[in-house]
Amino acid sequence: MKTIAIMAQKGGTGKTTTATTLAYYLAEMAGPVLLIDADQQGNASQIMGAYDPLEWGTEKLLEPTPGGAEIEDLKQTRSWQPVKKYPAVDVDVIAASAALMDANMEVAADAVNDQVHRIKERLETVADRYKYVVIDCGLLLDMAALNALVAADLWIVPVKPGGFEVDGLQRVQEQLQELRELNKGLEMWVLPCMFGKSNAHRDVLQHLHSLGHRVTLATIRRAVIAESYTAASMPLPVYSPRCGVVRDYEKLAWEVMAWSGEKEDTKE
């Protein structure tokens, strides 16, 4: 099982679209996949049709172990079949709600129990059940995000072609070094999102490569459909399976599978 955390500390970079679309494609091509929404805004939960403010979700993963709810009790299985001749795509989702804000504060105030390995310990109990876990983190390095990054094998940072977003990678690099004190094997990739074909965007992409981070082979193009589909309560590949952006994300999924040692046609 490989765990992938998606986190960017600038809004509007395509973070949640990346998390939900990547989870969908990994489930389609390799499966089974668990998507955890660790962002108190709950946008990933809404896109996957799993948001329910009255149900328990990710906040229960942040309770001390032993104790709290198990993944099996929290997950919702979402299923789509956009093309009838192909099998349905299933993704297990643990949703977020406003209660996650209170959970973050409770974990930060807990000076007795371990604070940062709670999600990791929960995931270890289902390591033989999932091939991939994708965690959508919030913009702040709160306790939910910190737990996610301590549990992760890979941290993907979506970056769009703006000066502030690119400059913010310096702080991300500093955080990565600090996180490796808790998670020595954590890798980080930079994912270019919302890029066009202009000379300015090509210059930004070249600059990203010069910074020394691993930049993904996949570059996600900018498209209106990727900015407007979110109210449909379905992943982007289901909403618009033929748009160019989903092909970009499909390439990212293949890149992740190659990194994890997967081969083609691996789904059982």
Rank of each mutant, 00 (worst) to 15 (best):
M29D: 15
H207C: 04
L61R: 08
G12H: 12
L211Y: 13
R129Q: 08
A30G: 12
V33E: 02
C243A: 06
W189D: 00
K120D: 15
Q41P: 03
M234S: 10
P237F: 04
Q76P: 01
L26E: 11
S45R: 13
M194N: 00
I135A: 12
Q173H: 12
M101F: 14
V215R: 09
V112E: 09
D153Q: 10
G57L: 14
V83I: 04
T13A: 15
A127E: 10
R222G: 00
V116N: 06
D92E: 07
Y130R: 08
G163K: 13
T20G: 05
V83Q: 00
Y24V: 12
T65R: 04
A30M: 04
V33G: 05
V204G: 01
A103S: 10
C137S: 03
E178H: 05
L146G: 04
E174C: 12
A88C: 01
L123T: 10
K251I: 02
W189Y: 11
A108F: 14
E121R: 07
A258K: 15
K15S: 12
V157G: 07
E106F: 07
D73G: 04
S198E: 08
Q40R: 11
Q46L: 09
K85F: 01
D52R: 04
M257Y: 07
L211E: 12
I94T: 08
K15R: 14
M48S: 08
G168R: 13
E268C: 01
A231K: 07
T17K: 14
S198G: 08
Q175W: 09
R129E: 11
M1V: 10
K75L: 03
D92C: 03
L191F: 13
V166D: 00
E63C: 02
H213T: 03
V172M: 13
V157I: 15
A111E: 13
E268V: 06
V116P: 00
E59S: 05
D248A: 10
I220W: 03
K120M: 11
A218I: 15
T216D: 01
